[in-house]
């Protein structure tokens, strides 16, 4: 049974996290999830918008929810937690009439409300299900030891996000296990990576993401798995900056969870996207299927 759902890729999907975008669409296709991209979607405003004004932020999000509604959808999915958070919070806040009116004042077309947003992760775990994921696996990722990092806003605040455990989420861990990887519990699953301070306050990101890498290293994992373009960028692209600032020599590949699923599904297009990762993942990928040999 296929699932048809409105799809909001988010700006970074068309730029810095294009490999997340391609692997997401690839994996969804492979699992009969029909992603219907919102026509002419616009930016949700991300963190900058809500730090300036909540009405403005919700207006930027609401335009997209209205477009999805017009296409006949009551649910939108997005791979990006920041977009997810903005879309969900806009919907949540606009349940209050005075706030909804203030937002609609800024919009060409008023938003009527009632469009839910789910992360792609949530759709895969809840709507598709782990059984179907397991069935689709062609090359189990046996031998690959990973830790899953969810980022700070995928599950928080719990009243709004309403998905998984807000301190110890397991959705990604379960997905990775379903595709055969060995999952080591990551104690800082929901600790912030430094978010968008990479540009204006680099030391914040090198400190916070540095701590994540340090803890991951202590676990002896081959890679970290993420679900957030900003987290991935901070941990991957800025890993060199972190090493310089912290005096470390990390060389830990940072995958999107969809990339590893694509790998397990043998989706060549998506696997191609791994070339876009800054920290070379070849050593980690080489472990796949090597577990038995090592023991032997």
């Amino acid at each position: 049974m296929s699932i048809r759902i409105s799809y909001y890729p988010g700006c970074s999907g068309k730029g810095t996290s294009s490999e997340y975008e391609t692997s997401t669409t690839g994996v969804c296709q492979a699992l009969d999830v029909d992603l219907v991209e919102i026509p002419d979607w616009s930016c949700c405003g991300s963190t900058p918008a809500h730090t300036v004004n909540h009405v403005l932020s919700s207006a930027l999000s609401a335009r997209n929810l209205t477009l999805a509604e017009q296409e006949g959808f009551d649910t939108v999915t997005t791979p990006c937690p920041s977009c997810l958070s903005n879309l969900k919070i806009a919907e949540h806040k606009m349940r209050k009439e005075s706030f909804r009116e203030a937002v609609n004042e800024l919009l060409d077309q008023p938003y009527g409300g009632g469009v839910d947003t789910k992360s792609v992760l949530q759709v895969l775990v809840e709507n598709v299900g782990l059984d179907k994921v397991r069935e689709r696996v062609k090359t189990p990722l046996e031998g690959l030891k990973v830790a899953c990092y969810y980022g700070c806003i995928m599950n928080r605040p719990p009243e709004v996000m309403d998905f998984d455990d807000h301190e110890h989420p397991m959705a990604m861990d379960n997905l990775m296990e379903a595709i055969g990887a060995e999952v080591i519990p990551f104690p800082l699953k929901v600790e912030c990576c430094g978010a968008s301070f990479g540009i204006p306050q680099q030391n914040i990101v090198t400190t916070l993401s540095g701590k994540l890498l340090e803890v991951a290293k202590g676990l002896g994992v081959d890679a970290l798995v993420t679900a957030c373009p900003l987290c991935q960028m901070n941990l991957d692209l800025r890993q060199g900056q972190i090493n310089a600032a912290q005096g470390t020599q990390h060389s830990l590949p940072i995958f999107y969870f969809t990339q590893l699923m694509a790998k397990a599904f043998d989706l060549s297009d998506a696997v191609q996207g791994m070339k876009r990762l800054i920290v070379n993942p070849q050593k980690a990928l080489a472990k796949i299927g090597q577990a038995d040999k090592e023991i032997a």
């Binding site: 294009s18 616009s42 403005l56 930027l60 335009r63 004042e105 800024l106 876009r276």
Partner: peptide, 27 residues
């Protein structure tokens, strides 16, 4: 890596977005 497109990708309804900002400033 081709991660940063060198040309902006504008949407068709960009005037609608500009209008949101404009109305926000007016309010």
């Amino acid at each position: 890596k081709g991660k940063l497109p060198l040309k902006p990708h504008s949407i068709k309804g960009k005037e609608q977005i500009a209008a949101i900002f404009k109305r926000f400033r007016e309010v």
